[in-house]
Write a protein that binds this DNA or RNA. Structure first.
Lengths: 337, 337
DNA sequence: TTGTATGCGTTATCAC
DNA sequence: GTGATAACGCATACAA
């Protein structure tokens, strides 16, 4: 509405808009006296740059879009904060979009951001198959994938070291004498496969058999986090635990954890006496249950920071070959194992 | 980079840019044949409108900004989804910004959004005192406050019915025979006062005394949600529970709940036998603890929907007097009372 | 039914 | 050291 433009500032200060612009951006030498006149006018009129005009003219919005599959999962919010921290330092503004696990919303979010002329994108894709993003993004803006390795789209990716994290966790259980270690996963995608491979490798390396009947994989359907508490993973855990030989359980994702823990508590498992448990991904409530849970925690700070840095590199130097970066987890030992 | 503009489309279709624009927006009659030529060119070139140009020219970005005090609290994300739902229907795009409970970040977020020419703002303010937003926002864009009633800034606000929700909860406890009902609050602001007044009114209406020594108020400092589990509310609950007359406890905000519940579990309170408990605000884990917790749940869907509607009204009709809207809570009875 | 031309607010290329 | 002026991509008033 009552918007003040550079023209107004220029007129009040008695200079040209070019001078105002240069004062604002420090892009050329300005006489001290002139500068002061301009700065006074800016204060007087309460002038703020219009980013839209600037973006149109300069071709750069200084905005980075963070499009996450599901922002109601704290994991992705914490990553967002780390991203924001790094990128603000570098002079960028960050806008968040929430895809709500819906590929159509994700598509719209990315479309919008591109139309807003974002200088870069950090994407947690809803689906593994990202080929449909190819013609949307193309070479319009650099783009880093986060937490999930995209299929059908060549780009940088920053991922947790899924294999190593699970390997380390299973190792711990084996060292404690467990031989029948159940494995629970709600989702099946390449990330889930990487984790499962860590499990299998750890068993193999200790000459333990891999028993298919104590590995439980969900349908791959994504349930909303809110609905999750009564969801599929509760049931899957029940089916898994019919096998009475199991003395330890590894829960391989945060979505499974809610239902699985709920099942174990409801059925009065004595942890860790009857059953040792380790879960993938920390959550604040996992340290306040009785017993508290041993977890392999993903490094949100590291993941966010790295993806921001990779994006910045890509923006400034678009010729390097694409690369996948791995951020190690951290094993946090609590009471459940 | 290889960005396609209306000019390119016009040239390929053999028409003027005006025609392309009108085809795109349906703003005037176009010959079927011409339209088809244009649409073909658009497909051929994979053309997408540039929102920046459109915004600059039209003065409207069709973007609404949602600036929340702390997006890692699920409550605010769920509200964001409801907002998004209503506003997408109305043809707006929504961008989220996370203030991380830091007024400086909030300020930057709002500043950015205004510079991006957003058509409206929905703000969960970090501080109660919003007078510093006055000169930033002014009449530059309509703005609805959410969840916290701003001081020093005249605007619409959409709030939970704090008074009634607590009144109803305390009523339930009184009906169950409780006379010494402890009250816990981590934060002290007008929202907290409203809730406390609901507590006091319920007691008064049943001719029960209001005992200051079983009411515990935090310092008002905001702790990060992540750090909260070991934070102030744990300690405050401990101090409160020194009073052995207390037979019921009302926890008046989600931030307190984490610490308070942690304290009660750690000290092996038998709930509800020794102590009946009701908390303000639901969270998924409150239904999977043992016992599960009775809560007065805030209606995120209603809060988000209403604030979006109020904003739309304000955008289309800016002359109505400002108003405060209240969205009722829902009492969900579980095992803790 | 369609085209031409202007301006939104800014930056950048000239010229002075 | 400073000022005109063009151009970014689009929508629209006006002309044809």
């Amino acid at each position: 509405m009552a918007s003040v433009s550079m023209k107004d500032v220029a007129s009040v200060a008695g200079v040209s808009t070019a001078t105002v612009s240069h004062v604002l951006n420090g892009t050329r030498n300005v006489n001290d006296e002139t500068r002061e006149k301009v700065e006074l006018a800016i204060k007087l009129l309460n002038y703020r740059v219009n980013s839209v005009g600037r973006t149109l003219r300069s071709g750069s919005s200084k905005i980075i879009g963070y499009v996450a599959s599901n922002l109601s999962i704290n994991f992705y919010m914490y990553i967002g904060r780390a991203i924001t921290h790094v990128l603000s330092e570098a002079g960028y503004n960050i806008i968040y979009a929430d895809s709500q696990e819906d590929p159509r919303i994700e598509k719209r979010n990315i479309q919008n951001m591109i139309q807003q002329n974002v200088d870069g994108l950090i994407i947690v894709p809803v689906n593994q198959d990202c080929s449909y993003l190819e013609q949307m993004i193309g070479d319009l803006c650099p783009c880093v994938f986060l937490a999930r390795n995209p299929i059908g789209y060549e780009s940088d990716a920053v991922l947790a070291s899924n294999f190593e994290a699970v390997y380390e966790s299973i190792n711990l259980l084996i060292e404690k004498g467990h031989k029948n270690i159940g494995y629970m996963a709600a989702i099946s995608n390449t990330t889930a496969i990487e984790r499962l491979n860590g499990y299998k490798a750890a068993l193999s390396d200790h000459n333990l058999p891999i028993l298919d009947n104590i590995i439980k994989f969900g349908s791959g359907e994504l349930e909303s986090y809110k609905a999750q508490k009564l969801g599929n993973s509760y049931k899957l855990t029940g089916e898994l635990m019919k096998n009475k030989d199991i003395t330890a359980l590894f829960i391989s994702d945060g979505l499974s954890t809610v239902g699985a823990v709920n099942y174990l508590f409801t059925h009065h498992y004595h942890i860790p006496r009857d059953l040792a448990v380790i879960t993938f991904d920390d959550a604040f409530w996992l340290s306040m249950t009785n017993p508290s849970f041993t977890v392999t925690e993903q490094d949100t700070e590291g993941l966010g920071r790295k993806s921001a840095e990779v994006l910045l590199n890509r923006i400034h130097n678009s010729e390097n070959p694409y690369q996948v970066y791995r951020i190690p987890n951290k094993l946090i030992i609590r009471e459940s194992c």
